[in-house]
Design a binder for these strands. Structure first.
Lengths: 145, 145
DNA sequence: ACCAATTCCGACTACATCTATAGGGATAGT
DNA sequence: ACTATCCCTATAGATGTAGTCGGAATTGGT
């Protein structure tokens, strides 16, 4: 499973990606926009900072900003940071014993992990913002018919 | 993450798949062969039975058997049964609120889930047993040079 | 110098899940 | 009856997750 913490992190990154680059965004603003518990988001944004995804400005008119262009941050980077290597065989019973029988399952998990990473490394936050824009337009189109 | 329970279930299925079809295998035997705690395995094999993957014979000379041919059971079937829909967006914060912004992430998770299922639905237990056989031969070949 | 807005820090509670075990019951072959 | 085996329920302990709390540090405005 993927933790809420990570989901919220992705939503926060998405929100930051929509904003003009270089303009600090307040925690409370992100929380309101993305409907995330403020106090929780506070901790998460600090994690994102720790991970090098964001920087922050303290004091009045402070807030958070991306360190890189949304086109150069992949969803997978954030997920990897928050969840570590999902499906890592080493973290399961497969890691303890080495036997040919277990190697097979370790390989299977490896294949699955690769498939995952290929999926979400293929999307930058710019891609996601663009998709959202498209979707929003489709929605409006349907609604106004 | 994938639980040990599920890993053990896969190993047990793998062990059963190696045996001649129709011949009950004792819990203790599977446990020894695959190095799984017996009491834990006991519960897991019952789960597998509940899931329709195995049947059992009670009493002396009893044990567990597969209900279907190894070629017709996919790794994904077992994983699905034990873990439910991995990466199901509904089980996260994405499920609670419907907003266009969240739809994007829901889609991303959906893509990832599909990639996963494609991977481990592509392998039957027969495939896995065959792979193990191959690997074992390679190992012997290397070792005897 | 003060105040208000904001990020930062560490601890903390409540809750759920997972691993693994334990004790004893039911069943079947001999 | 005896023994080997599966079957059922409960449970202890460890771990992880979600989300909160109180207050400290920083910055800008007046």
């Amino acid at each position: 499973m993927i933790s809420n913490r990570c989901i919220y992190a992705l939503l926060a990154m998405l929100e930051l990606s929509k904003r003009p680059h270089g303009d600090p965004v307040k925690i409370s603003e992100i929380a309101r926009e993305q409907q995330i518990p403020v106090r929780f988001l506070e901790a998460i944004l600090r994690d994102l900072k720790q991970g090098g995804f964001t920087t922050s400005v303290r004091g009045k008119d402070g807030g958070y900003l991306l360190t890189r262009d949304p086109g150069q941050i992949r969803a997978g980077d954030v997920i990897q940071y928050f969840e570590g290597s999902v499906l890592d065989a080493e973290k399961t019973a497969l890691g303890n014993v080495q036997a040919v029988g277990r190697q097979i399952l370790t390989n299977l998990m490896g294949d699955a992990a690769n498939a995952l990473e290929r999926t979400w490394n293929g999307k930058s936050f710019k891609d996601l913002v663009d998709e959202e824009q498209e979707l929003r337009q489709k929605f409006v189109a349907n609604y106004s018919i």
